[in-house]
């Protein structure tokens, strides 16, 4: 197990390094000089050169890449062109919004999708099943930002139960912060829950048809006990895979939904960075998003080993 873990982590690090290189190269071939862009048309060549030196832009590309890589470890990611503050601090601050948002959405999606999928499977081919699957088709089709807009329309503008946007920060305690995050998290979670419900349903139906379910029933277990004790754990294996794949969609979703609810998170920072052509910020943010998706995929592989003894290396 330890060797497997080490190998998987090594793979992750290699993938991250490759991602960093690709992102760096893509942004490197971008035309235009950020220093000139920042100073505007009135800048003299001297002031531009001075700013270039200050930002480290006069260094060769290879050295700047290595410095960035080192910075990824130490947290010193250079200065944001637009904000003129360290990128590391900027990202750290916004992290406190996006991470709880993503985790909350993931929990809601699993908490809604998996039980509904199990319910549909245990009543497969009944009216309840048909209704649940019909609803899940709708959930798949509705974009998360439209969910967001509808929630704002209904719960904020209409009923006034929730703020329509903004974030009070964590300093006032978790109450107001969670209150501000619940609608965006739900908007993110519903399409994911629809996917999870469908996958869970088919995985549970498949598991219920296995011979070991008959063995369990022959031991004297009820249908429900056989489902919970025997089918569910086997069915969770494909569900976890999809959960991992969905995480990368979730990250993408935060970019959009943070826009809907005006949350000061990483996603909105990324959109602002693109608007301001803030390359230092863009490259670190894009790497963070890609890295998070890759890290979750690695976690899924490790979770496999825990769920399925057959995948466990001897």
């Amino acid at each position: 197990m330890l060797r497997f873990l080490a190998a998987r982590i090594a793979m992750l690090v290699a993938a991250l390094a490759t991602a960093a290189l690709v992102i760096f190269l893509v942004l490197e071939i971008l035309p235009g000089d950020p220093a000139a862009a920042m100073l505007g048309v009135s800048a003299t060549p001297e002031t531009i050169a001075a700013l270039r030196a200050e930002l480290g832009l006069d260094q060769p590309a290879a050295r700047r890449f290595l410095r960035w890589l080192a910075g990824l470890v130490t947290g010193d990611l250079g200065l944001s062109y637009a904000y003129r503050v360290p990128v590391g601090g900027l990202i750290g601050e916004r992290f406190g919004v996006t991470l709880p948002l993503a985790v909350l959405a993931m929990l809601l999606a699993a908490g809604i999708g998996i039980p509904l999928g199990v319910a549909a499977a245990s009543r497969a081919n009944t009216r309840l099943d048909a209704v649940l699957m019909g609803v899940s088709q709708l959930g798949l089709a509705i974009p998360n930002f439209w969910f967001g807009l509808l929630f704002v329309l209904i719960f904020s503008i209409g009923l006034g139960w929730f703020p329509s946007g903004g974030f009070p920060g964590w300093s006032a305690g978790p109450g107001p912060a969670l209150h501000a995050l619940i609608l965006p998290a739900l908007a993110l979670a519903l399409p994911m829950a629809a996917v999870l419900a469908r996958i869970t349903r088919s995985a549970v139906i498949e598991a219920l048809g296995e011979d070991y379910i008959l063995t369990a029933r022959a031991k004297g277990l009820s249908r429900a006990e056989a489902l919970v004790r025997h089918a569910l754990r086997n069915a969770l294996i494909p569900v976890v895979t999809i959960l991992g794949l969905q995480f990368s969609f979730l990250l993408t979703g935060t970019v959009v939904v943070e826009g809907v609810f005006a949350l000061p998170g990483l996603g909105r920072l990324l959109i602002q960075a693109i608007g301001g052509h803030d390359l230092m910020l863009i490259r670190s943010l894009v790497l963070m998003f890609a890295g998070a998706a890759m890290a979750v995929n690695a976690l899924v592989d490790i979770a496999y080993g825990l769920l399925d003894p057959r995948m466990r290396p001897a």
């Binding site: 993938a15 690709v22 969609f249 993408t252 693109i274 890759m294």
Partner: peptide
């Protein structure tokens, strides 16, 4: 590798 990049991120 391409697939690991979320769609909107690569678009961005």
């Amino acid at each position: 590798f391409v697939f690991a990049f979320p769609i909107v991120l690569s678009a961005i």
